[in-house]
Design a protein around this nucleic acid. Sequence first.
DNA 1: ATAGTTTTGCAACTCAGTTGCATTAAATTA
DNA 2: TAATTTAATGCAACTGAGTTGCAAAACTAT
Lengths: 127, 127
Amino acid sequence: MGIVRKTKAVTTVLNIFEAQNEAKSVVRLIELVKGVMNKTTVYRVLDRLEQEGVIHSFNGRDGLKWYAKCDEGCSSHKHLDSHPHFQCTECDKVECLSLDVKIPKLKNHKVDSTDILLLGQCEACCS
Amino acid sequence: MGIVRKTKAVTTVLNIFEAQNEAKSVVRLIELVKGVMNKTTVYRVLDRLEQEGVIHSFNGRDGLKWYAKCDEGCSSHKHLDSHPHFQCTECDKVECLSLDVKIPKLKNHKVDSTDILLLGQCEACCS
DNA sequence: ATAGTTTTGCAACTCAGTTGCATTAAATTA
DNA sequence: TAATTTAATGCAACTGAGTTGCAAAACTAT
Ligand SMILES: [Mn+2]
Ligand SMILES: [Mn+2]
Ligand SMILES: [Zn+2]
Ligand SMILES: [Zn+2]
């Protein structure tokens, strides 16, 4: 499929993720494009990019929504990103982790996905 | 310490958790005590009970706040409940899991806590 | 250019969670 | 028991993330 239309809004959001390979909260993204585009558009562009497998979303510490670039291999409705995330409780930065966490089998349950959020201090805030 | 005052509101909330050892969202709790107590009070009672180690909280699927009874051993600011939770994507029920999930060490990070939410179908919805 | 379709801005809305403040009800003390 | 102290409650107003409907603007294809 791919993104239906390469609009200015789409490009703007993509550039933010290209410029710096770092997870961003929607709140932060809206702040970054203040004056340039409407917050509703930000939400809608993010939705579309996620559907197309360009970025993936998860919930941060306070239930806020975060997004980060997908690794190669993700595409429309075939997200391979089910990695854990780490959020620093001091500076709030979020990192995608490539850890492989083993979840023991659950009897009588069908587990479809696993959301893991580690909380603590990042490298910068540790020292 | 213990709960400072055993008020009617505290008793009402505790009774709900005693009656049925099951996690409840704040939204559901407010619904359950509609007409009997104010939602602000529900939030405040839950805060206090959590601080005292009677219940523990976590974020469910959509970022909503959930609470469940603590096991023995928790007390004021010494929560031992860092277990994973399972939420059914069909009926929304949440279960506390006694799974022990091993998280590999993270270099240059200090990990304080781990939030794990498994999503899928519960026993009832599986069959 | 023209038409068809998607995307955007805007304003108004929803809904979980919070805050300030006056009132009420526990717990203490007399 | 009655008075005093202080924590807890109700209420109304607020905050802030996320959503919705609709008309206008911007893509894309012909
Ligand atoms: Mn990620
Ligand atoms: Mn639990
Ligand atoms: Zn940090
Ligand atoms: Zn279920």
